[in-house]
Simulated scan of single mutants.
Amino acid sequence: MGQSDEKEKKADDGTTPVAEYKGQGFIFVDGDKSKEIVEKNAAEIKKRAIAYMKDTYKTNVKVNNVVPARDAAVVMVEAEEPIEFHTSVIVGLDMQKKELDPSPNVWSQDGVVEGAIVSGLYAKAYKEEFIQLDSFTANEAKKYDLEGYNQKSIDKTQAGGYEQRFYYISVSSLEFPTVYKAYLQNNNLSNDSELLRSLFLKDNPDFSNVSISCRYFFKSKGLPKQEEVDKMREDLNLSKGLPKGLYSIDVYKNFIVNRVGLPNGDSTRAQELQK
């Protein structure tokens, strides 16, 4: 297949190599029905999302993307201080009148923002360990010729909490209720890493319910062999000083499905590892 044929194929199947993907074509189901309303009211939608995060979760955020959905706009937001995470907020539309709901009708999916906050607090509490994880995952990518999401695609399409190029954290606030409640009462506690760590250890000292998903893309054609990914698991097993949690490793084909911002197809996966 020639280069022009390959480009044509990518356009046809709506995929983009991960290194080139920056959120193009990203849209939610039936978003074409609300696209015009969302574009027309983008400024007010952003304002409502920012206010909701401040009022409900005591957190300042910036808006990275406003995405049309069936009868709403999904706003991709990012917190940078005092903790770092990505999440999403939903702003309701009146589809009969083809306008924004008159009163701010704003919400989030159950547990999504709460979990994102706890993931950001975990990364802040164990900053040195996460610096080590950043270094480890980057070295693994280089060693095995792998790629990861770029920052623009994370900002525009991802809402999973604390996310970096090669990994993200999944955690429920229900597993760390003391941590979450303490943050809502006083955001500044995130600056006291010793106190924060003590709260995490009080709630769940082995961090067995924290999932740290290592997510890579194979630069070569297709998927890597299972033994290659098993070697990566062994590297992880031998590595010291990383954050505690249940680790998974997935290596996907080198394509993102534009409209959903997710990998195209299956992955080669290693057995999970508790650290």
Rank of each mutant, 00 (worst) to 15 (best):
residue 150 N to F: 03
residue 201 L to T: 10
residue 189 L to D: 01
residue 166 F to M: 03
residue 142 K to I: 12
residue 147 E to S: 13
residue 211 S to C: 00
residue 189 L to N: 07
residue 239 S to A: 15
residue 150 N to K: 11
residue 173 S to K: 05
residue 229 V to I: 10
residue 128 E to M: 09
residue 243 P to H: 08
residue 248 S to M: 06
residue 126 Y to G: 05
residue 211 S to I: 00
residue 135 S to H: 06
residue 258 N to G: 13
residue 128 E to T: 14
residue 136 F to Q: 05
residue 135 S to Y: 08
residue 245 G to I: 07
residue 218 F to A: 07
residue 226 Q to W: 00
residue 225 K to T: 15
residue 199 L to Y: 13
residue 143 K to L: 15
residue 258 N to Y: 04
residue 253 K to I: 01
residue 113 V to G: 05
residue 184 L to F: 11
residue 151 Q to I: 14
residue 165 R to L: 09
residue 211 S to Q: 03
residue 170 S to Y: 03
residue 242 L to F: 00
residue 224 P to M: 02
residue 138 A to H: 04
residue 182 A to Y: 06
residue 143 K to R: 15
residue 155 D to C: 12
residue 156 K to F: 06
residue 168 Y to T: 05
residue 190 S to E: 08
residue 184 L to T: 11
residue 204 N to M: 11
residue 153 S to Q: 07
residue 142 K to T: 15
residue 161 G to W: 02
residue 202 K to G: 13
residue 127 K to A: 12
residue 195 L to F: 07
residue 139 N to P: 04
residue 251 V to S: 02
residue 254 N to F: 00
residue 184 L to Q: 14
residue 233 R to M: 13
residue 169 I to F: 09
residue 141 A to K: 07
residue 159 A to R: 06
residue 133 L to G: 01
residue 124 K to N: 11
residue 257 V to C: 07
residue 124 K to W: 01
residue 177 P to K: 04
residue 219 K to S: 14
residue 168 Y to P: 04
residue 200 F to C: 04
residue 195 L to Q: 15
residue 206 D to K: 03
residue 222 G to N: 08
residue 124 K to R: 15
residue 171 V to Y: 02
residue 177 P to E: 04
residue 215 R to E: 14
residue 196 L to K: 01
residue 154 I to R: 04
residue 255 F to R: 03
residue 114 E to V: 02
residue 248 S to A: 08
residue 178 T to D: 12
residue 258 N to D: 08
residue 141 A to Y: 06
residue 160 G to W: 10
residue 223 L to T: 05
residue 200 F to L: 11
residue 224 P to C: 02
residue 197 R to N: 12
residue 159 A to D: 10
residue 194 E to T: 12
residue 233 R to L: 14
